[in-house]
Write a protein that binds this DNA or RNA. Sequence first.
DNA 1: GTGAAAGCGCTAACAG
DNA 2: CTGTTAGCGCTTTCAC
Lengths: 336, 336
Amino acid sequence: MATIREVSKFANVSVATVSRVINGNKWVSDATRDKVLAAMKELGYKPNSFARSLATNKSHTIGMVIGDLSGPFFGKLMNEAEQEIRNAGKHLIITSGHDTVESERDAIDFLLQRRVDALILHLDVLPDQDIIDIADNSGVPLILVNRLVPELINSSISLDNELGGYLAVKHLTDLGHTQIATITGPLYKADARARLSGYRRALEEAGIAYDERLVVESDFQEEGGIAPVERLYRRKVKFSALFIQNDHMAFGAMNTLKGRGVNIPEEVSIVGYDDMVMARYVEPALTTVAVPVAEFGKLSAQMALKLSANEPADVQNLRFVPELVVRSSTAPYRKK
Amino acid sequence: MATIREVSKFANVSVATVSRVINGNKWVSDATRDKVLAAMKELGYKPNSFARSLATNKSHTIGMVIGDLSGPFFGKLMNEAEQEIRNAGKHLIITSGHDTVESERDAIDFLLQRRVDALILHLDVLPDQDIIDIADNSGVPLILVNRLVPELINSSISLDNELGGYLAVKHLTDLGHTQIATITGPLYKADARARLSGYRRALEEAGIAYDERLVVESDFQEEGGIAPVERLYRRKVKFSALFIQNDHMAFGAMNTLKGRGVNIPEEVSIVGYDDMVMARYVEPALTTVAVPVAEFGKLSAQMALKLSANEPADVQNLRFVPELVVRSSTAPYRKK
DNA sequence: GTGAAAGCGCTAACAG
DNA sequence: CTGTTAGCGCTTTCAC
């Protein structure tokens, strides 16, 4: 690929002049500029970003690590963030964390080596302490998405998942349910644990004893709702309501339930979590906890941008509050 | 951030030695290596990838541009590709094309400036000629996903969308339907046009005249199935079957139809396209055309990796064939 | 307006 | 085994 030197020779000017043209510096005559532009085009020249960044020590790039590149949740998050960053004339580099400590660390290293201006991190498994170390030592500002590290509270954008779980289950107890089962995400994820705490708090408040036979851990994955339902039946525990920690699993669970001839919501009420678009389209439409993903993406990008420009970021409203969306998959408890 | 020179001073060795340690060169004594490693850790040193890439002229990075970062289709694609590339010890940089020529071009430029070893491109709007130019002049091998450019046939991984559309509609004509409406994606996208051609071919084959009042263009988006259904009714055309060019729109359309009290499939049969996970979970389960997205992602990454290593890529089986998955949203035609 | 030259942080001969 | 040094391609003073 052509270099700046080749362009300068071709256009009969110095490299400095070519550099000025590239960077839109005013101190170039129109004639010279045209000559250089023509040469660049002719040679198919593209500035080498490495050389550039090395010389300027700027990358104009924001790095993002995300747990799972598929999944509607992250899709939206990335999309919003990218939009925002692109509008600011910068670029986003996205890498996946693959849910392992090693991979998450590797992803961050990759971005750090690329000297990103800021880091937007959605980390599932990396311990708090590691994150704090990075915040302290990397010299790169960082934003934590969907995770609350107390030491980094001013850069943690999070959702009150405990409250989300609570709202979901409170809705069920309010409807008179007392036998409420739950399907959780992987409990090594803070999200899942928090939602489970909310579940417990709501039960407690309603004076219902916690029964671990009603709790099944699953994986947040698309098919993750199926086996847990079967397990509940195998455990021979009765339940008239089911709080499922994300919509994906809820869809699978609903299907399995229907397959067993169970009427929703007459026999079993269901509450999901995330409020994916599809929640409105399943039958019955799913009652679920809405998470403001788009806001997550937007805000994280805005903060990253500000911090990378050394501007103070607005640290208000970093904690989002989930909202219950009541649809048709929940109904008052009825004795059989 | 610390530089190699600082590390070398700290460890009392030359920069060359530090470089050797970084690169796992064998010609370093254990003692020296430990000293250097300690210094690196102490100083929180991370090699500057710019300087490195500048010196080696290698980036160990594959670039990907993708139409829409959200959307289950692309999520899977990215995920598979990232997996594969990460396994090869490289990294993937993902950028979005945002469905505009300018943005797609900008995304490619960004990656080219970053001297990626190869390019995986999912382009929606950039003209063929531009892509050919890039293939010819960038000096970077490229893989085209879900698009067939005749001049670049050996690097085009594509799906026979015409056949997909044909299969969908043939299924409906086989069931005896003669009034078959269709909701398409944006017709500036080749996918949508190809599926529509397939629709026409199937009709023709069945001796049914093409009626443009039965064709509504939409946007492939989540809510894109709703308005078109309303438009069909407003046009006062009768139809007993509906081929919808992607599942997302199909879900919206099914919902709207149900809202109008229309029975699926008794009164209207529906065929979608993509075979998203959710297709199995809606009611009735959606008959749809399956697209091997995961294979797309995997294969594109493998080819990119090979080409970037100057190995010949296997150019067989670059054209995938869609398959019809029959579920419960289609039924034989019944006179009312 | 334009050019010469130093230097960004690292790698890769080459010498020892 | 280890150190010296010449670039990699670009930006940025400083001269002219």
